[in-house]
Design a protein around this nucleic acid. Structure first.
Length: 504
RNA sequence: CGGGGUAUAGCUCAGCUUGGCUAGAGCGCUUGGUUCGGGACCAAGAGGUCGCAGGUUCGAAUCCUGUUACCCCGACCA
């Protein structure tokens, strides 16, 4: 309800998350179980993410294409691990026609059963590699660097807005290479793109590294992931990049003739991030006042709130707001803000109290709010408020209107930086090194967080830990944790610490 | 798929145990007025086949049977 405070994180973390999604107008549950409606405010964030990511994909040589939503059932069966991994969560189209029943609506026409049932894609490796068979004949056709922006469906038992929904939006890159080394390089390159996007745009620090065999993508030789820490200290897998080896090429009979005239199977990668990132964004930065969006992804950067009691005051402050908005719009474009100009909103809802309006803009996560009231106008000034420090604490009074555009630009950059630093400090404060399993079992419950510990590399050990503590190995981090040691459970030798955490 | 729960206004819910006139509240919405520098207030309105189908009864939101949907907890997952 408008006018009421949201649940605080301390009260109930998941209710806090739902309140933010609802009150900031990001998404709502639809009438279709497990599926969400992404509302304009939420979709605008996704669009900003898409533009930034798409630019990074293009810079690394990729092009976009689109493959079908439906996949013949037989395709899925060709790659066995994949079939096994996704079988339990595939939606299946069995009929192609309905019949109108007068007075009763419609029912499935039993006469219209499909010869071959169609799977709604849970991911597109199979149909894409079936298509690549026709596209790849020569080493000259490689590398093939294609991305698609699409929706996919995975029939989840339990869903949460953005974090896990039955249908979600994502991008999936699918590349083919002549040499193994090239494909592996690509797998790492795209992981690095994701890391940069997470840190530089989302202001969300991540650990990167391979998943354990038990947690890799079905059909992959190995899976690299970016893992972020949410404010409840749980981990969120925010993106994955897979080295697929020749598994799909062989399953779909894709071969090319090398320069030496030999027939070879190409090497593959696939990589993706989804609307789940929006959930990660919320849980990384938002506070008890509402949503916090880093400036580089904010659909609206500046909200100007003119304040006035009388019609004259209102007219004067709205006019000043308009001039300021024009001055901001006239600033030179900067790639820092992505492909769009700075967006400014002027809030003319004078029938609401100023306090209400301030709170609404904080709730919506707009990084900078400008207040212009009669008292400011006397000295041609305004008040700047930064969202990352809510309430009066983040206000700067008496900023001359003529200086405001430059100050706002500086403020936005500072907010972007501060958000990252704050998130990083939080993660570091909650990442612990442990060497004894007893200590681990205790600390994973309280205080919780990420735990860097030695593990012997055995699936049985991993399973045991997961069973006993509900924590999983998030990744084997690439960032400097190589270190000789002994597995905290079995005492067997280990070459480096891995990241344990409870996860979404 | 196992265990629990709910279904009444756009939203959150009361009413049901113990059947009874025209089914209620808060929030939101509309209109008018007063307010206005950190979540204002007053007044008047609009809005509901009480999930659906049967049954019991003079009478059902309320009792009974069936049915459907959704939510929560567990096993699976980006």
């Amino acid at each position: 309800m408008a006018g009421e405070k949201i649940t605080t994180r301390a009260q109930d973390y998941s209710q806090w998350y739902l309140d933010i999604v609802h009150r900031a107008g990001l998404a709502e549950n639809s009438d279709v179980r497990g599926c969400m409606v992404i509302k304009p405010n939420g979709y605008a964030i996704w669009e900003r993410m898409q533009r930034a990511l798409d630019g990074m994909f293009k810079e690394t040589g990729h092009v976009n294409a689109y493959f079908p939503l439906f996949i013949p059932k037989s395709f899925l069966a060709k790659e066995e691990q994949m079939a096994e991994g996704f079988a339990k969560e595939c939606a299946v189209v069995t009929h192609y026609r309905l019949k109108a029943i007068p007075g009763k609506g419609v029912e499935v026409d039993p006469e219209a059963r499909l010869e071959e049932e169609l799977i709604v894609r849970p991911t597109s490796e199979t149909i894409i590699w079936h298509t690549y068979k026709n596209w790849i004949q020569s080493y000259r056709d490689l590398p093939l660097l294609i991305n698609q922006w699409a929706n996919v469906v995975r029939w989840e038992m339990r869903t949460r807005l953005f974090l896990r929904t039955t249908e979600f939006l994502w991008q999936e890159g699918h590349t083919a290479h002549a040499k193994q080394a090239e494909a592996e390089e690509e797998t790492h390159r795209m992981l690095e793109v994701y890391r940069r996007f997470a840190e530089e745009w989302m202001a969300m620090p991540v650990f990167t590294g391979p998943k354990t065999d038990g947690q890799k993508f079905p059909g992959a030789v190995y899976t690299l992931a970016i893992e972020a820490m949410m404010q409840d200290k749980k981990a969120l897998q925010a993106g994955t990049s897979h080295f697929l080896g020749q598994n799909f090429a062989k399953a779909f009979g894709v071969q090319f003739q090398s320069a030496e005239g030999k027939l070879e199977s190409p090497w593959a990668t696939s990589w993706g991030v989804s609307t789940r990132l929006i959930g990660g964004l919320i849980m990384t930065h938002s506070d008890d006042q509402g949503l916090v969006v880093p400036p580089r992804l904010a659909p609206v950067h500046v909200a100007i709130v003119p304040i006035g009691k009388t019609p004259e005051e209102q007219k004067a402050t709205v006019e000043a707001a308009g001039q300021l908005a024009a001055a901001i719009a006239a600033m030179p474009r900067d790639p820092f803000y992505g492909y769009d100009p700075l967006t400014v909103r002027i809030d003319k809802e004078f029938d609401k109290s100023p306090g209400f309006r301030f709170n609404e803009w904080e709730l919506k996560g707009v990084p900078v709010r400008v207040e212009i009231g009669p008292k400011d106008l006397v000295q041609s000034a305004c008040v700047l408020a930064r969202r990352d420090r809510p309430g009066k604490e983040g206000k700067q009074m008496g900023i001359p209107l003529s200086d405001a555009p430059a100050k706002i630009d500086a403020l936005l950059r500072d907010i972007q930086k501060s958000l990252f630093e704050k998130a990083l400090a939080f993660r570091e404060a909650n990442t612990h090194r442990v060497d004894s399993y007893e200590e681990f079992k205790q600390k994973i419950e309280e205080p919780g967080g990420f735990f860097l510990a030695h593990w012997d590399g055995a699936k049985e050990t991993e399973d045991r830990i997961t069973q006993e503590t509900k924590a999983t190995i998030r990744c084997v981090p690439l960032e400097g944790t190589a270190e000789e040691g002994n597995c905290m459970v079995t005492g067997k030798p280990s070459k480096g610490r891995v990241v344990f955490a409870k996860a979404y």
